[in-house]
Simulated scan of single mutants.
Amino acid sequence: MHRQPLLDLLKHHQPFDEDERTMLEHSIQFVRNHPNCFERQLTIGHVTGSAWIVSPDRWQVVLLHHAKLDRWFQPGGHADGDPDLLGVALREAEEETGLRDLKVVNRAIFDVDVHTIPARVSEPEHLHYDIRFLLEATTDQPFVQTAETKEVRWVDVREIGKLTTEKSIIRMNTKKK
Rank of each mutant, 00 (worst) to 15 (best):
H34V: 02
L134E: 00
Q74C: 01
T97Q: 13
C37A: 14
R153F: 05
N36V: 02
A147V: 06
P124K: 05
I131V: 15
L42Y: 03
V155Y: 15
F110G: 07
G45C: 02
R40S: 07
D19A: 15
G98E: 12
V47S: 11
G98Y: 13
F133A: 10
E125A: 15
H66R: 04
M172Q: 13
R3W: 00
R40K: 07
V114D: 00
D113M: 04
R132T: 10
V121W: 02
H26G: 00
K150T: 07
F73H: 11
A137G: 15
V88M: 15
A93K: 04
E148H: 05
L127E: 12
K176F: 11
P118Y: 05
Q141W: 04
A51C: 11
H115V: 01
R158D: 03
V114F: 13
V54W: 15
L6Q: 01
R32I: 00
L7F: 02
D82I: 05
T43Y: 12
V152C: 06
Q141A: 12
L69M: 11
T97C: 08
R32V: 06
W59G: 08
I109P: 02
L90P: 10
K177Q: 03
Q41S: 03
E125L: 02
A119Q: 12
H115C: 06
K150E: 14
K177N: 05
I117Y: 06
Q29P: 00
V88P: 04
E123V: 05
Y129I: 02
R171H: 13
E123L: 02
R171K: 12
F30L: 01
R107P: 15
E159S: 15
R107W: 12
R58C: 03
V88S: 08
I169E: 00
D8Q: 15
E125T: 07
N36E: 05
D80C: 09
D111L: 09
Q60Y: 15
F110Y: 06
L90D: 11
H26Q: 06
L163V: 05
W59C: 06
D19T: 15
K175V: 00
M1C: 10
I169W: 01
L6A: 06
D57Q: 11
K162Q: 05
S168E: 04
A79Q: 05
L24G: 03
